[in-house]
């Protein structure tokens, strides 16, 4: 395998460059996926069929906490990648671990939020609005859940195998994924929660 040392580790082999580009294209597809969900949400958001509306069920506190947790995790994974570029494996692993903990915290709050919704009579089957709301949030939540496992696997691999072009590449791609989830959340926060509460 040819390793080009003038480039960062995650870009250093041709295979790594292919993977990064491929992942960007995958994120393009993910954008379309969430765009479709958002478009459906905007179409259906006032079709509550007598069930609860967004303004009735959204609560700012848990949503704000979730937002802060996820935004911070996006920052810490950025620090993790920075540490990786400096070759500081220990710092990188710590930042990755913090990221995952924050992500798990986010997920905890989201599950709590879902349980509250269902208790308030806003279940998946209540109306078109609740169906698309829970599906959109759930799709994002499922992405985060997948990310937690993925991140954990990467931590284990970096720990065992050290910072090689391969593990660096995986970590970098994972960070792209995590940032992407953060961006999606910003849209969810602004256009679902804030708009819904107003």
């Amino acid at each position: 395998m040819k390793i080009d040392n003038s480039l960062p580790l995650e870009y250093s082999t041709e295979e790594n460059r292919l993977k990064v580009l491929g992942f960007w294209i995958f994120l393009g597809a993910e954008i379309m996926l969430f765009a479709t969900l958002f478009a459906t949400y905007f179409t259906l958001f006032d079709r509550t069929a007598g069930g609860p509306t967004g303004a009735e069920i959204f609560e700012i506190t848990p949503v704000l906490i979730e937002t802060i947790l996820l935004l911070t995790s996006s920052f810490t994974i950025g620090l993790g990648i920075h540490a990786m570029r400096l070759g500081n494996k220990k710092a990188m692993l710590s930042f990755f671990a913090i990221t995952l903990l924050l992500g798990a915290g986010f997920l905890g709050f989201e599950i709590f939020e879902f349980v509250t919704y269902v208790h308030e009579g806003a279940g998946l089957q209540t109306s078109a609005f609740t169906s698309i709301l829970l599906t959109t949030l759930g799709t994002h939540g499922a992405h985060v859940t997948l990310g937690l496992f993925w991140g954990l696997f990467i931590i284990l691999q970096v720990k065992k195998r050290g910072l090689t072009p391969e593990t660096a590449n995986k970590s970098f791609i994972f960070s792209l994924y995590w940032h992407f989830l953060d961006v999606v959340w910003i849209f969810i926060f602004s256009f679902i929660y804030l708009k819904g509460m107003m």
Partner: peptide
Amino acid sequence: EHQESSDSDE
């Protein structure tokens, strides 16, 4: 309005 905007794109 809402029935009409049943498309899914930007």
